[in-house]
């Protein structure tokens, strides 16, 4: 008598989606987690996670994800490698369209598709991506042994990864458009104490130049002075863009940047559809609140399903 394939479909395999999966499996919901391989969470690109509770010595980003995945598997969560191409959410039974052509149906959905790194949007960036322009310090740091490189940004990710990059590079210049960092104090203190890290304040990157690979950055200070910085690599770590390509944002509700709006219980304005993690419109994007939101979203889903059934 069950008209839907699932009670709950979770889209996304990062900390929010996996935590939702753990809670859904323990609630004995008929649930599936869909992940597309490519976006298993920004945490995968994090070298070392020092602020997730319960790991006093820290843990690598991918080991944390591995452990969350194993924990979800222990409670029997069904997971599938699948790319979602669209959602039909007009009716109470929601349809999830997959890239394989298949459609699965569910009463409730949790959207945990996360976010991806922003690009600078300057000349040379696209052409030199993978040839010196990088968005992942853990992935690409080892290619810059004994070289001079730059990091663009001033938040936690930028400053922490600048620190990580000093394990390889001889000099790391942090280019930041403001006069001070936004990064957490303890991360700032480590960076300021590191002799390999230098800062260019009030400065923006206007272009990335090079033929076979990155050779220099074209810079401009906020008061209009132009300059250049010779580097072989530049790591762009300036915040994130929501992974919302297939989401019906006008129905779900989103902020002006395309992040999904929810209430405190993670509910979107469509009954039965929750959002959790970096895809949500919010100020703080940390692993710990992403995971917490995954749990809250499942409890909202359970409430919704109880009313439904």
């Amino acid at each position: 008598m069950n008209p839907a394939d699932y009670q709950l479909v979770i889209i996304g395999g990062g900390p929010a989606g996996l935590t939702a999966g753990i809670y859904a499996a323990r609630a004995r919901l008929k649930a599936v987690l869909l992940e597309n391989g490519a976006v298993a969470g920004q945490v995968l690109t994090t070298d070392w996670v020092d602020n997730y509770p319960g790991f006093p010595d820290g843990i690598s980003g991918f080991e944390l994800i591995d452990r969350m995945t194993a924990q979800a598997a222990r409670f029997g969560l069904e997971t599938r490698q699948a790319q979602v191409t669209g959602l039909d959410i007009a009716l109470p039974i929601k349809k999830v369209h997959l890239e394989s052509g298949e459609t699965i149906t569910s009463r409730a959905l949790i959207i945990a598709t996360g976010a991806r790194p922003n690009q600078l949007g300057v000349p040379g960036e696209k052409e030199l991506t993978g040839k010196g322009v990088s968005y992942c310090a853990t992935c690409d740091g080892p290619f810059y042994r004994d070289q001079e490189i730059a990091v663009v940004g001033g938040g936690d990710t930028a400053v922490q990864e600048a620190e990580h990059l000093t394990k390889f590079a001889s000099r790391v210049t942090v280019v930041h458009r403001r006069a001070q960092l936004r990064a957490t104090q303890i991360i700032q203190e480590k960076a300021f104490a590191n002799p390999k890290i230098h800062f260019l304040w009030n400065t923006q990157v206007k272009g990335i130049e090079g033929t076979a690979g990155v050779q220099r950055l074209h810079l401009q200070t906020n008061d209009g002075q132009e300059g250049s910085l010779a580097v072989t690599g530049v790591f762009v770590l300036i915040g994130t863009t929501p992974n919302n390509d297939f989401l019906p944002l006008e129905q779900l509700g989103s902020d002006k940047h395309g992040f999904v709006l929810t209430d405190g219980e993670m509910r979107t304005k469509i009954p039965g559809i929750m959002a959790a993690g970096d895809i949500r419109s919010k100020n703080v994007r940390q692993i710990v609140n992403g995971a917490g939101e995954g749990a809250v979203a499942v409890l909202a889903a359970v409430d919704y399903l109880n009313d439904f059934e």
């Binding site: 597309n36 191409t85 991506t129 993978g130 040839k131």
Partner: peptide
């Protein structure tokens, strides 16, 4: 000149046909 991974290069007849950097989807 691979300086970022994952980088995926498609070769045909000894030539590079196309190159993609970063984790992209199956489609």
């Amino acid at each position: 000149a691979v300086r970022a991974i994952p980088t995926l290069i498609l070769f045909k007849n000894g030539q590079v046909l196309e190159q993609i950097t970063g984790a992209v989807g199956k489609a």
